[in-house]
């Protein structure tokens, strides 16, 4: 991997994202939904934590992240610019890392205003630093896994809408899978619970840093990124 190359791709992707009005729409929707669901029970329950924010985050991420990733590969295939990119002296890993880090950067920018929630809580009551820090670390892992899944879905299609629907469906499935455990036979419960992104993410929000949860998110990210690397080997 050429360090310089993936940084240039990263910068271009970031610039391109913020050039488009859809970027601001996605970010506004994210902040509206999380803000509404965070502040509406906040004064009712009168609890100084960010549980309601983190509880909702996997669901909100399951459609906002695919909305960010959908154009990353699909648009390049459709416009033909992928041919230009692949014939420049950059490797598939450079392209992948540039795009992956750009989406993570965009998510970082999208999460920045949520510091207001944090400051509001800190101002009004005693903040459980451990749980909040765990929540944000978990958010990083969750975002990384969903970004990789979203990019993989974008890499398999040259239609952005298909990429979005596919990405949202996979992420949503990973989020709600542990809500379906009641309907499953006993021997499948453990497996489906382990497959659930929400299950692993909620451990982080409790302030628990378990290597199994880290391993889960890294595996999802790693497998998806490997899938993209394979698919883009000869994508016309």
């Amino acid at each position: 991997m050429n360090q310089q190359s993936y940084i240039h791709i990263f910068k271009r992707e970031i610039r391109s994202f913020f050039f488009s009005p859809s970027a601001y729409i996605v970010m506004a929707i994210f902040l509206l939904i999380t803000g509404w669901f965070f502040f509406s029970p906040f004064f009712l329950i009168a609890r100084a934590d960010m549980r309601s924010f983190f509880a909702l985050l996997p669901i909100v991420f399951s459609f906002t992240i695919p909305a960010i990733t959908m154009k990353q590969y699909a648009e390049e295939y459709k416009s033909g610019s992928f041919e230009i990119l692949r014939t420049l002296p950059v490797s598939r890993v450079d392209i992948l890392m540039g795009k992956f880090l750009a989406v993570m950067g965009i998510i970082g920018v999208m999460l920045l205003p949520t510091i207001i929630y944090l400051l509001s809580i800190a101002f009004l009551g005693d903040l459980d630093i451990g749980a909040v820090a765990g929540g944000y670390i978990g958010t990083l892992f969750l975002a990384s896994a969903f970004t990789a899944v979203g990019l993989l879905c974008s890499a398999v299609s040259e239609n952005q809408i298909v990429a979005f629907i596919l990405g949202a469906a996979v992420c949503f499935f990973l989020v709600i899978i542990d809500r379906m455990l009641l309907f499953l036979p006993g021997y499948l419960v453990g497996l489906f619970q382990y497959l659930s992104a929400s299950f692993h993410f909620h451990n982080f929000t409790k302030g628990i840093l378990d290597t199994r949860d880290v391993f889960y998110f890294l595996t999802i990210s790693g497998l998806s990124l490997y899938g993209i690397w394979m698919i883009t080997r000869e994508r016309v």
Binding site: S16, S79, G80, S81, E83, I84, T87
Partner: peptide, 11 residues
Amino acid sequence: YLPESAPLYPE
């Protein structure tokens, strides 16, 4: 390399 119909980044 210049591919057919020069697919550049329009934005």
